[in-house]
Amino acid sequence: MTAERSNHDRTTAEPSGSTHVTGDRSIVAFCCRECAYAAADASANARTSLPPSVRLVLVPCTGRVSPLHLVTALAEGADGVMVAGCLLGQCHYREGNFNAVDRVAFVQRLLESVGVEPERCRMFTMSAGEPPKFVAAVKEMDRVIGALPPLQRHDTSMSEDAGDAAEPAKAAVRTRAATPAKAAAATRGAA
C-alpha cells in the first residue's frame, strides 16, 4: 500500500511486516466496545503508560472475532493477537465472550499443530470498571510476545524457488498428494 512498508512476503531476520512499532513486537488487540475498550479508555484517561506494541481494534463484542481474524492478523504481521472482552457471564450481548473463549482456544490448538507457539493468541476478560485488568493484560501479552522470537512468515507458493534457499524456515508444508478424483473435484469446487 505504501512505499515505506517493507515487503513482508519475504522472510527476514528483523521483526517482519510494517505493523510493528520500531523495535517492538506487533500485537493486535481485539477489544469489545462495552468492557475491554471501555477499560482501555479509562486506563488511558488515567494516563497509565502502556507498551507501544499493542494496537487496539474495536469490535462490538468479542463474539465477532473469528479464527480467521486471529490467524490472518498473525499471518499479516502481528507477532501476537489478543482478544479482550467482558467477564464471562456479563457479556453485553449475552454470550459472545463464551464463543470468543472457545475460538481463541481453537486457534491456540491450530497454532500448536503447525509448530507455532500457542501463547501468541490469548483471551483476557475484564469489566469496564477494571482498567487495571486491561493494563495487566496488555503488559502480560507484551512480556510473553517479547520473550518469543518475531513470528516468521513464509511465501505460500509451492515451488522451490521462493525466497532464499538457505532459509531454515522455508515452507515445509505441502498439500497432500492429490488423487485424480480429488484433483478433478478441486477443479470443480474452486468455482
Binding site: 481494534v57 462490538p60 480467521l68 490472518t72 492478523a73 499479516e76 504481521g77
Partner: peptide
C-alpha cells in the same frame, strides 16, 4: 456479515491492508 464490522473492515484495520 455484521454491518460496520464485516470481515473486510475488521481485517483491514487489523492488518493495515
Amino acid at each position: 456479515q455484521l454491518g460496520g464490522f464485516s470481515d473486510a473492515e475488521v481485517l483491514a484495520e487489523a492488518t493495515l491492508r
